[in-house]
């Protein structure tokens, strides 16, 4: 095998391995997102923040969470301490893994889009 061929084979192997890595990573992420959506609904996050993370109102306006830009630490701190009227969720009822999955789900949601693209919002 020439050095060129060796390099080609190695490259292909790496490419295949890389693709696998990406596929595995995407699959894991999809799992996290799907799990996050399940937990987000089952523990009632949606009741205030909406199924699409669009926000809502409780005693005060409730912020939208779709495609949240909150860093992990800030996100976790908010859920654990519950600012204002938001209930605080201790680790005994909502694990760190659940939190990470919820955040992954929220990150996967489409965020705000230009209102100009929606004729109904331009009247």
């Amino acid at each position: 095998m020439t050095s060129f061929n060796r390099s080609l084979v190695l490259g292909l192997v790496l490419l295949v391995l890389g693709a696998d890595e990406v596929a595995w990573s995407q699959s894991a992420q999809a799992d996290d997102t799907a799990s996050g959506k399940r937990v987000y609904i089952s523990v009632g996050c949606f009741t205030c923040h909406g199924r699409s993370g669009q926000g809502g109102s409780f005693n005060y306006p409730v912020p939208a969470l779709a495609r949240t830009a909150l860093p992990v630490e800030a996100f976790n701190a908010i859920v654990r301490t519950g600012p204002n009227d938001m209930p605080a969720y201790p680790a005994s009822v909502l694990s760190d893994k659940d939190l990470a999955d919820i955040r992954a789900f929220l990150r996967s949601l489409p965020g705000r889009r230009p209102a100009e693209d929606f004729p109904l919002l331009n009247q």
Binding site: G50, R51, S52, G53, Q54, G55, A64, A66, L109, P110, G111, R112, R113, P114, A115, D117, F118, L121
Partner: peptide, 10 residues
């Protein structure tokens, strides 16, 4: 208007 787009097709 921007917030109204969230979950538009949900």
């Amino acid at each position: 208007r921007a917030e109204a787009t969230l979950g538009w097709d949900s």
